[in-house]
Write a protein that binds this DNA or RNA. Structure first.
Lengths: 189, 189
DNA sequence: CTGTGATGTCATCACCTGATGACGAACCCG
DNA sequence: CGGGTTCGTCATCAGGTGATGACATCACAG
């Protein structure tokens, strides 16, 4: 049995770090890593921002933890496959176009953060698409895959940031269908 | 006749402000507005950053000036049209995916900057595409246009930032062809 | 030559950011 | 009831940012 000491809800490290992590996921998705301050995170979490240092070391550490969460249990996704794309979209609507997709557009300054992020990006999104294009006998499979990922990231990031008028409010189904049409364009040589 | 006093090349306000503007265009395109500091701009321009205040007022003013330059003489562009897309790509390779495209992904914090940018974005890129989709009798023409612009912006920003391996080094012709295939996917219902 | 305005240089300000450590309070154990 | 550990709060630091104004230097008109 896992001991359940009924953590009395007044001082609870697990709860605090959880709230910080969730707030970080939200804010990173909305504003991106740079524009999010540790004070913002603390405020949204209702937790003193100094605790970020205690539980995650640095802001970068919190980012890496968020990266782990957002990729935890997320399978490789072939964005040209309807099922995969649908699951990915649902994930993104739930936890935001987390750290991974954003770094496809603008890489991190910190090499460690970018390296960790890039691994996820490459392995989970670029690779499956590359394989798909290669199987289809198309030229430049990796370039096609990268373009597809960059385009998909553009749509998802814009959708969350609210930069464009209708995209932010569009239904998940519409976005699913239209990004499908978009990406399938890359299958026509 | 415009008097040409042969500005003796030692103290030349026009030259200084020009260099600042060009440096700003480069850096905004590479790193984005937020990650670019006025000291960076001054250093690349070889000009004291304090002159930014003199000639442009604030960093935001310099941004607006850069926005004017990068849209000056840039016609409305239907990205589904090969010629238009080619010209737009050439522009972007020359002066970077300036302020306009970046704001399609992540809006500015400053309302003034975002408003000015959004006007350009909407009028020059979204509108023509919207018309095109409407003429084709497709549903949700504006949403389609916004998705197209977000996707295009994603590709262009990523290309310049070097976040993805091959995209940064790909030839303009390849990118032209593949973004074409990509965007034309949106013409299939 | 002189002085007046334009241009460039520099020090400095106020603010924000991430990070740190001291301190107090709550919890749990015996 | 103690005593040690965990947890939360707060003040503060160092570094960087955009902005500002005083000052020095040059150009050019008179």
């Amino acid at each position: 049995m896992t001991s359940q000491p009924a953590p009395s809800r007044r001082r609870d490290a697990a709860r605090s770090s959880e709230r910080l992590l969730q707030a970080a996921l939200d804010l990173f998705a909305e504003r991106g890593y740079d524009r999010t301050t540790v004070r913002d995170i603390g405020e949204r979490a209702g937790v003193d921002p100094a605790l970020i240092a205690r539980y995650f070391g640095t802001k970068g550490g919190l980012y890496l933890a968020a990266l782990r969460v957002s990729s935890d249990g997320a399978p490789d996704a072939d964005l040209l496959d309807l099922e995969h794309r649908s699951e990915t979209l649902q994930r993104l609507d739930r936890i935001g176009p987390g750290p991974v997709l954003q770094s496809a557009l603008r890489p991190h300054v910190d090499p460690d953060l970018q390296a960790a992020t890039y691994t996820e990006l490459q392995g989970r999104l670029v690779q499956p698409l590359q394989q798909r294009f290669r199987d289809a006998g198309l030229a430049d499979p990796q370039l096609r895959a990268e373009i597809a990922v960059a385009a998909f990231a553009g749509v998802m990031v814009s959708r969350r940031s609210g930069a464009l008028e209708q995209l932010a409010g569009a239904s998940a189904d519409d976005v699913l269908a239209l990004t499908g049409a978009l990406l399938h364009g890359l299958l026509d040589s």
